[in-house]
Design a binder for these strands. Structure first.
Lengths: 344, 344
DNA sequence: GTGCCATACTAACACGTGTTAGAGTTCAGC
DNA sequence: GCTGAACTCTAACACGTGTTAGTATGGCAC
């Protein structure tokens, strides 16, 4: 490995000089132009690459943002991560994925601290661990950003998409197509995101003066069979809906499939809307109309907020933990159409 | 931050002793039981977490495997990454994702070297960069594993799924269902993986004594519209196929959709098989029969191979760069069925 | 008491970098 | 020629850890 000392001896200067030159690549404060050139030449010729580890060691900054997550193989995680990396890397930071292995326990927090990150972003972190996270990070004065739609947490920044508004867009779209009987299939009651979207559904329906009959709210439990059965219950309803808003894309695709299996055509007989805009939405049969969440932007915003907070802390100021709320955007594809004439 | 010195003063011993104790948690060589206990207690009470950066610095090992990739937001990357992390982390290693930002250029290699990884794994890395990668890593004696299906590269370990065999499984499945007229929609001719699968298709067809008529091999160009048109060309064929094997799941889902739009029922009139087993395959309408690639295993195998090679290098031996070939597995879902009686 | 050995601990160096007080040199101004 | 300032450069320390040669202590045999 080429080190600064190698450059120093080759350029005939001290190691300190090399360090000074390389850290002020353009401005030459207290360094003769001739020397500067010699050092840079030597560095280039030897193919020098700074040792980030040593650099992190001496500056005390790890240049790492930790991303705490349950299952790294999920598309949502990947897309948030990509956005976070895009934001972090030009600023010289790196996003480190920290995944649980097996059960959630506090050791994952330890693994976070080990790398001395400048900030921690968390997704799908259970509330119990959030508690532990806040405590532990408060101890080391490491800012934390949570990407869940769970409830406000003092001392943690929340970075969210505006799901209430997103659901409203979906219902407004269906309402605009003439639908009056709009049902809802949620994820699971245990999820904060799911219950929030259910609330959004109820609010939007009320806003448009539409009724929510008994049995119009079903739960798919994030599970193929259960979502299929939920759909069938809706189709068996005495006043079957002409449209379904689903709290997530997978549930929506299952609903669409379950309907077409029973001879109910999507979108002619039943319009279906999803939520998230996973990649699979574009490849559905029919392609799924859905509310696109800005995953990459969420990742970028989380990193931005964390780096901002870290700078505040360094200046000795109290960091800003205001919530960041990003807009969703309805993507209309093929699974929604005008309600049957008889129904409008 | 709690350091070893803090523990030392609290336990009334020297920092060196703390280091020795903590690095030999169970075995106590040259340390009195009483001292050992005091140190461990102090460490626990103070909530000590080792500074990984300092540790990496002194050992010279970064404990990092770099994962060089084009687009980190893809599901395939996420799943390989998850497998790699599962393999690496119990051994104390971490997988660092290095993504290109914008165009591929050699700076991404620099970013790889900066962290002094013990190994580099690459996916979708263009051949030109592979060249550069091999050169640069050879210089620092860092082993490299490539997860592409591209051609053998001297000095690089290849970790692959056995796609030829996987395609054979798919064709065998269709053949077993009585299909004789089996067509193929490939990805793009520019991709090594796609042309390999085309070759697999031709070989398997030959093995079963089935003809490949003119026009039975189409290319979807990894693009929704093009894949749709490719499907239509097949359906317009004078002797239309009863089954299609597609080189990837997305193409297969598009083919399935394009067929059902023309009133060709899947699987009753046309069986469709994909390749990869992306998550979307399970949510297709109908759910897609596909050849599941072992993404997590590939990631794990790459890490295993790299760590093995790193250990060899440390012992001064020449590392083994034998190819690793993992089996694919056909997953039968709903998009394939027996060929129409008239066709068998 | 002396010599020797085992046991228990510590001092000192190393890793590669960033930072800064201060040393050395040059030169203009008188 | 002397003074002081301006300009270059370097020595020395710091970061937190792993490693090891070496020191101190205690006990045992003679």
């Amino acid at each position: 490995m080429v080190t600064m000392s190698d450059i120093a001896s080759r350029a005939g200067v001290s190691r300190s000089t090399v360090s000074v030159v390389l850290n002020n690549k353009d401005a030459a404060v207290g360094i003769a132009e001739e020397t500067r050139r010699r050092v840079l030449n030597a560095a280039r010729q030897l193919g020098y690459r700074p040792n980030e580890v040593a650099r992190a060691m001496v500056t005390g900054k790890s240049h790492v943002v930790a991303f705490l997550v349950a299952d790294p193989s999920r598309e949502v995680v990947a897309r948030i991560l990509a956005g976070a990396m895009n934001e972090a890397e030009p600023q010289g930071y790196f996003v480190k994925l920290v995944a649980r292995d097996g059960a959630w326990d506090e050791r994952i927090i330890e693994r976070c601290v080990e790398t001395r990150p400048v900030g921690v972003m968390g997704l799908y972190v259970p509330p119990s661990l959030n508690e532990c996270l806040r405590e532990e990070m408060g101890r080391y004065r490491i800012p934390v950003a949570i990407l869940d739609s769970s409830f406000p947490q003092p001392g943690l920044t929340r970075v969210l998409s505006d799901d209430l508004e997103g659901v409203h867009q979906a219902i407004a779209h269906l309402h605009g197509l003439g639908h009056r009987r709009i049902a809802h299939i949620g994820g699971t009651r245990a999820s904060g995101a799911s219950t929030l979207r259910e609330e959004g559904y109820r609010r939007a329906m009320a806003r448009f003066g539409l009724p929510v009959p008994e049995g119009y709210v079903q739960w798919g439990e994030w599970e193929i069979d259960a979502a299929g059965r939920a759909t069938e219950r809706l189709l068996d309803h005495p006043e079957p809906p002409t449209a379904v808003f689903c709290a997530d894309d997978k549930t929506a695709l299952i609903a669409s499939r379950a309907a077409s299996r029973r001879g109910v055509r999507v979108p002619e007989d039943l319009s279906v809307v999803g939520f998230a805009d996973l990649e699979m939405a574009r490849y559905g049969n029919p392609a799924l109309t859905t509310v696109a969440q800005p995953f990459a932007d969420l990742g970028a915003a989380a990193v931005r907020s964390l780096l901002e907070a870290a700078r505040s802390l360094q200046r000795g100021e109290e960091p800003d933990t205001a919530e960041v709320l990003l807009p969703n955007r309805l993507v209309v594809r093929e699974s929604t159409a005008r309600a049957p004439l008889s129904e409008r």
